[in-house]
Design a protein around this nucleic acid. Sequence first.
DNA 1: TCACTTGTGAAAATCCTGTAAACGTCGGCA
DNA 2: TGCCGACGTTTACAGGATTTTCACAAGTGA
Lengths: 117, 117
Amino acid sequence: MAVTGTGIENGVLATPTGAGGRLEIRPGEHAALVDGRPLSLTMRELQLLVTLAEHPQRIMTREELFAEVWGSQPRREDRSVDVYVSRLRAKLGAALPETQLIHTHNGIGYRFSPDGC
Amino acid sequence: MAVTGTGIENGVLATPTGAGGRLEIRPGEHAALVDGRPLSLTMRELQLLVTLAEHPQRIMTREELFAEVWGSQPRREDRSVDVYVSRLRAKLGAALPETQLIHTHNGIGYRFSPDGC
DNA sequence: TCACTTGTGAAAATCCTGTAAACGTCGGCA
DNA sequence: TGCCGACGTTTACAGGATTTTCACAAGTGA
């Protein structure tokens, strides 16, 4: 079933074709592609990207992200989510310069924006 | 039937002519050629190469590869796929230096990239 | 016998992961 | 302005997990 307005089509999450290129996420194939070229993401990085991209424009708390990706509650001082967001941004930034897909919301969490805004 | 965009043409799998040379696989003739010169591959090695090359850019799990090449389910600790990938890479690397055709995806499997990316 | 292929075990090499700590930024306040 | 605290970002590292490679034994056929 295709869900419109969320970036989800046939199980594939995709961003609009922007200046930098198009990001396509295929969770079923363990793959994320930029203009057809696969990104080299680790399992955790991909899971985090998928989780963020499944809820475009929605601010997700660290607790929500941790629960989805790690499958449990984070310890209070746990910085894993932040570290993985940083690693993900580094790889996304290398493949899609000038595009800010993951936004920080101070004191709350992170938000995935397909169009970079 | 020619399938475009997958590297399959008339039953022949071929990589683009790159810096290192061109790889041509002719499953029907049990042969793999680099710039016209036949590679000396064993049956298993060739079957594995054909299976990978039939799905360019797609990450194939060890289970999928084993099923295609060995025709059964691998034992959990079975490293046959890894060993044959290693042997294949050694022979491909000797004939096509500087070209990485088979990529490892940690925790998942392997991916064949005709253009080495 | 000899050359070759195949599968297996295990050591070596490499990669991933979580954590701690250093670093940077921002805003409040004296 | 200068200091301080809160918070997010990034780097480094150690341990563990995974992959790569090597050596070897068994099997096959010329």
